Simulated assay, not measured.
Amino acid sequence: MKTTFSRNISSSVIENYIQRVTELSQSSQRIPTMGEVEKIATELGIEPDEIEAAQKQSHDHYVRAQGYMRLKHWDDAILELQEAVAFNPSNLEMLISLASSHMGRWQEKHYHKDENNIRFRIRQCLVIKPDCEEALNLLERFSKAFKWRKQTSIGIIVGLGGLVLGVSSFFWLSDTLPNLREKTSKLQQLERVVFRDLNELQKEQAVFKAEIFTLRKRNDRRYQADVSKLHSRMNQLERQLATMQRKILEMENPQPSKITPKSFPYITIP
């Protein structure tokens, strides 16, 4: 419902007037003076007596806004109060109600523009009355709510980040663990083969060592020839042992292994 003027003025002119007064107030961060308000009215072709009549009728907008505020219809309340304030820019009660309506809508929808309007309208109230208790209480409520919402948002972001990381890790492990198990199984099989070969070489080395001692006791003509053959065989065994140790080191380089290369005593042929 628009304000009724003494002569027929289109609703677009009224809306233009309200918009210009509001923009002037926000851009200058202060309450427009009566001279500035009258200048805007003159530019739009609105007579002073019509402004005076509108100021009286702006109370109706304020009353309707109170009803909308009780019902928490914040959009309607803000529209009514903007029109009321446009014709009464210094009315403290209207400014408090407008700031409260922006606060109500911000708590429900969290519009960034409402954050700015809350601070702006509270400043206007404190310009009119620096110790305005209602404005200061509203500012305290807004500060606490804003801080709590910021902390909650950070907590949600961190929690979602942890959840995403956990899910990603789960799927990564789901793909990786089978491969790791397969590689571990193959490594264990290879280790068993290496251990088996090492044991065989150790047994063969022990047998030749016993034979050497036996030949030394015989002290016959075949001693030198047999010792030469055994020495050749021992060299062959040493080369095989060196090859097996290299295999063990190659297995241990990409992944730590449970195998600890053993030192084998070499037989010195006299």
Score class of each variant (00 low, 15 high):
residue 221 R to W: 08
residue 235 N to F: 02
residue 11 S to M: 08
residue 9 I to T: 14
residue 26 Q to H: 08
residue 13 V to S: 05
residue 246 R to E: 14
residue 112 H to Y: 13
residue 266 Y to T: 11
residue 245 Q to P: 00
residue 188 Q to M: 07
residue 189 Q to V: 04
residue 31 I to C: 06
residue 209 K to L: 04
residue 243 T to I: 05
residue 189 Q to T: 00
residue 211 E to F: 10
residue 105 R to M: 13
residue 77 A to I: 09
residue 109 K to D: 12
residue 60 D to N: 12
residue 173 L to A: 08
residue 55 Q to C: 07
residue 193 V to Y: 11
residue 212 I to T: 13
residue 244 M to A: 02
residue 119 R to S: 08
residue 193 V to W: 07
residue 164 V to I: 13
residue 86 A to Y: 02
residue 155 G to Q: 10
residue 26 Q to S: 12
residue 224 Q to R: 14
residue 181 R to P: 02
residue 133 E to S: 15
residue 115 E to P: 00
residue 140 E to R: 07
residue 17 Y to M: 12
residue 103 M to A: 08
residue 225 A to Y: 01
residue 17 Y to C: 08
residue 130 P to S: 15
residue 143 S to V: 13
residue 205 Q to K: 05
residue 62 Y to N: 12
residue 89 P to M: 12
residue 148 W to H: 04
residue 105 R to W: 05
residue 260 T to L: 10
residue 207 V to C: 00
residue 170 F to G: 05
residue 89 P to L: 13
residue 222 R to T: 11
residue 2 K to M: 14
residue 102 H to C: 07
residue 113 K to T: 13
residue 239 R to W: 04
residue 200 E to I: 12
residue 181 R to G: 00
residue 82 Q to A: 07
residue 268 T to Y: 09
residue 86 A to W: 00
residue 210 A to M: 03
residue 109 K to S: 10
residue 57 Q to A: 06
residue 81 L to K: 03
residue 1 M to V: 12
residue 168 S to M: 03
residue 68 Y to D: 10
residue 95 L to K: 01
residue 241 L to F: 02
residue 149 R to H: 04
residue 188 Q to T: 06
residue 236 Q to G: 06
residue 63 V to M: 15
residue 108 E to M: 04
residue 261 P to A: 00
residue 153 S to P: 00
residue 267 I to A: 06
residue 225 A to K: 11
residue 175 D to G: 05
residue 64 R to N: 11
residue 147 K to D: 06
residue 211 E to L: 12
residue 118 I to L: 08
residue 1 M to F: 10
residue 75 D to L: 07
residue 71 L to M: 11
residue 188 Q to R: 09
residue 265 P to W: 01
residue 14 I to P: 04
residue 190 L to D: 06
residue 87 F to A: 01
residue 156 I to A: 09
residue 48 P to N: 04
residue 229 K to C: 09
residue 158 V to S: 07
residue 89 P to A: 10
residue 230 L to E: 09
residue 90 S to A: 14
residue 202 Q to K: 08
residue 135 A to H: 04
residue 29 Q to N: 14
residue 246 R to Y: 03
residue 152 T to S: 12
residue 127 V to D: 00
residue 169 S to H: 00
residue 107 Q to W: 06
residue 162 G to M: 15
residue 157 I to P: 01
residue 104 G to D: 04
residue 37 V to H: 06
residue 93 E to R: 14
residue 12 S to I: 15
residue 228 S to N: 15
residue 212 I to Q: 03
residue 158 V to W: 02
residue 267 I to V: 13
residue 134 E to R: 09
residue 170 F to H: 04
residue 168 S to Q: 01
residue 111 Y to A: 06
residue 225 A to E: 10
residue 78 I to Y: 03
residue 167 V to H: 05
residue 105 R to F: 01
residue 212 I to G: 02
residue 155 G to F: 10
residue 87 F to D: 05
residue 33 T to W: 03
residue 54 A to L: 06
residue 237 L to N: 07
residue 215 L to A: 12
residue 17 Y to I: 04
residue 77 A to E: 03
residue 221 R to V: 11
residue 198 L to S: 07
residue 57 Q to S: 01
residue 5 F to I: 12
residue 76 D to G: 00
residue 80 E to W: 01
residue 100 S to V: 04
residue 105 R to S: 11
residue 269 I to R: 06
residue 227 V to Y: 07
residue 189 Q to S: 11
residue 50 E to T: 09
